[in-house]
Structures are given as structure tokens and as C-alpha cells.
Amino acid sequence: MKRVLGILLVLVLAAALFVPGQVLAQDQVTIGVSIPAATHGWTGGVNYWARVTADRLQEQHPNINIVLLTAGSAGEQANDLEDLVAIHNIDALVILPFESDPLTDPVDFVKQSGVFVTVVDRGLAREGIEDIYVAGDNPAMGRVSGEYMVEALGGEGKIVILRGIPTVIDNQRFDAFMEVVDETDIEVLDWAYAYWNRDDGFEVMQDFLARFPEIDAVWAQDDDIALGVIEAVKQAGREDELFIIPGAGMKEVIARVMEGDRLTPVNVLYPPAMIATAMEVTALVFVSDAPFMGTYIIDSPLITPENAERFYFPDSPF
């Protein structure tokens, strides 16, 4: 085992010596980026934005080197962190944690080795570890969806809700939505988990349509779920009686909003591009003397036919 490690070390050193243009000057900065693998649409978007941003930052700042690793599970991500510190000798870490709790200690460990830490989207279980925190606003996403729902229905009507995966994120969105809707005469017929995917969205909506003869609106909360819901509604021939509020900002759904589709009149943003924000800000820490430490909350604005073009990225997979 030791011999294998020794050989590896020699290889790594040899590689470092022969990589052209890699000047080991003192202002050479390595930023490690650790994100979940692309297991569903939204994380696919995260991967795309991380890649694009890494390329651009390295081109803009020749002294910045970015190492991008994707992990399939929380455990794998913890291993990645060890590799980033031990092998790549990173100066800064940008991490979108797979799960908050299991990764709190590993990230803390990285921090204690003197690395600058930026946490994205899912906050760690303990405060005070990260230097920069970039996050979407989950309660705002629920609230904005709720406010549009109330406005579009004129304060009364019957709705169903399709939720994501039972997680903190999902609870925050749901609670904020309900807080807005509870004060009105809108009746929530029922809700069910649709696991942020199309097949479950389709099946749950089929059942809701069979069960409730009258539905005025659907809060699908997610674009993948919404696409499944749309098919179920079309199959039942009830596309004239209701509308759907999706969420996140998938290009297919933004395109529908741009065209003024009646079924999906709006969308509510929860951008995977927040990983790009985090990487940009982290890079700036090393090239500028301005203060950047703190918390950055990315808004969840309502996307309407009027402003949809600003949120449409045809090259992104999401």
C-alpha cells in the first residue's frame, strides 16, 4: 500500500513538473469545486454552469486553476474533499453539499487546513465554517408561487400541490407557500410527493384528476414534475379548466412561458447557475482587494412572458 502511494506521489510530482505553463509562483491559486453528479435535471444544470464558469475563469485569470469534481453520494463527496486537499493542494473550495449533515465535518476539516471555503445552496449544519455562503431562496420560491396563485385565482379556488423529495428544501418551499395561501379562500384539495421527476408527476396528477372533478390550479413546484402534470392534464382533456405553476427555470418550460402558453403562464426561478455566482465571487477574492465575505441570497423572481428571455439559456441541458 505504502509503495503504491509512493509511486503515485512520484507520478503526481512528475506530472506537475511536466505540465507546460504551470508556473508555481506564489500567486498561483487552485480552486476546488465539488458538486453532486448530474442525477436529475437541476444538478445537470449545476454541472453545466460549473464547467462553463471554470473554463471562463481560467481563461480570464491565468493564475487561477480550477479542479472540478462530481460525486454520486455524500460519502463520495467527502472522499473528494480529501483528494482536493491532499492531491490538488487547493487554496479555496466551492462546494454544493450533497447533504448538509454528513458533510459538515469534512468541510470543517478542509477549512481548518487553511482553505477558503464557499458553500452553495445547502447550508452546513454548523454555523461559522464557511467564508462565503451563496444560496437560492427556498422560502421565497414558495412565497412567490403562493402570491401568484392567490392573484391569478382572485383569492378563491381549488388547488392540488405536487411536492418534491421529503427534504428541508421542500419543507421550506411548502411552508412558505401555505403561509400565503392559508389566509385566502383557496382550498388545498390534497398534496403528494412527486420526487422532482416527470413519471411521478404524471402518475400523481392522473390520480388527482380522477379523484377531484374540479381543480382550478396546480402548484407543481418543479419543472420536471410540471412536464409530467401537463401530459396527464392533456390526456384527461382538462387543459382548459386549470393552470400549472412550475418552478426552477428549465429551458423547455421557460420557452413555454415565452410563447404565452395558457397551461404554464409563469415560472418561478431557482437557478442552478448559482454555482457560477459562487465560483465567480470566490475567484474575485484572489484577484481583488475588495471585501467579498458574507452571505449571498439569489432571488426567486416570477418569470413572465415579458421577462422570460432573460432566463432562457438554450445551450444549458436544463
Binding site: G44, N47, P317
Partner: peptide
């Protein structure tokens, strides 16, 4: 399939 879809969805 994840690779083919570039992490997103094939439509």
C-alpha cells in the same frame, strides 16, 4: 444515459 443526456433530459 446520464452521459448521453449531458446530465439533463433527452426530449
Amino acid at each position: 444515459v446520464t452521459y448521453l443526456a449531458d446530465g439533463g433530459t433527452l426530449s
